[in-house]
């Protein structure tokens, strides 16, 4: 399989990820959800402090505890919650800034791409709460329709934190 990515595709992917980040930061969660494929697995494993010898066991596996392991319905439930008017942890909403960088692409079969990026999410909340989340994001993007459109078929976020230094992860990565 030809693994080279042309410049145009790379630009389209980058633009897609930046637009996605803007939807989250601007609070357009329904539109954000629409970017995901119906068979999405949105997975954020738990990370554990391990010895160098056991480093391969740092991240929880798919049958172990995770920060998120949502299918489409799961994500939809979370987003419906935000619109109920009673979602206290996000009402007033967190103010987020999603930074996406170090994007790397690999072509897969069937017009899919594996896209690896670094993510840094800044959150400001209420008066003086500030949180930072840092991690590696691995997405599987799928061409959908024409004109540089994609859908996210899978997302795994490998956080750099073991102990999460905030009272809740009420935002998305």
């Amino acid at each position: 399989m030809n693994n080279r990515i042309d410049v145009e595709t790379a630009r389209e992917v980058e633009e897609f990820l930046f637009d996605e980040a803007a939807l989250l930061d601007d609070g357009h969660f329904d539109e954000w959800l629409a970017l995901f494929a119906p068979d999405i697995r949105y997975f954020v494993p738990v990370r554990t402090t391990r010895s160098a010898r056991e480093r391969d066991k740092e991240f929880s596996g798919t049958a172990e505890l995770a920060h998120f392991d949502d299918d489409y319905e799961g994500l939809k439930t979370r987003i419906r919650r935000l619109a109920t008017g009673f979602a206290w942890a996000e009402d007033p909403p967190s103010r987020t800034r999603h930074f996406v960088s170090n994007i790397r692409l690999r072509a897969l079969e069937n017009d899919e791409f594996e896209v690896t990026s670094n993510t840094l999410v800044y959150r400001s909340r209420l008066e003086r709460q500030v949180d930072m989340f840092s991690g590696k994001r691995v997405d599987r993007l799928r061409r959908s329709g024409g004109g540089g459109k994609f859908e996210i078929a899978a997302r795994t976020v490998y956080l750099d934190h073991t102990l999460i230094l905030t009272n809740s992860i009420s935002i998305f990565f």
Binding site: A63, E64, H67, F68, D70, A87, A89, Q129, S168
Partner: peptide, 23 residues
Amino acid sequence: RDRITRMFGTSGIFEQDDGENWV
């Protein structure tokens, strides 16, 4: 594993609002 992770824990939709109150 799937359901309770969504309800309770770091990102749980029940858990989040407890934390908000206590903070």
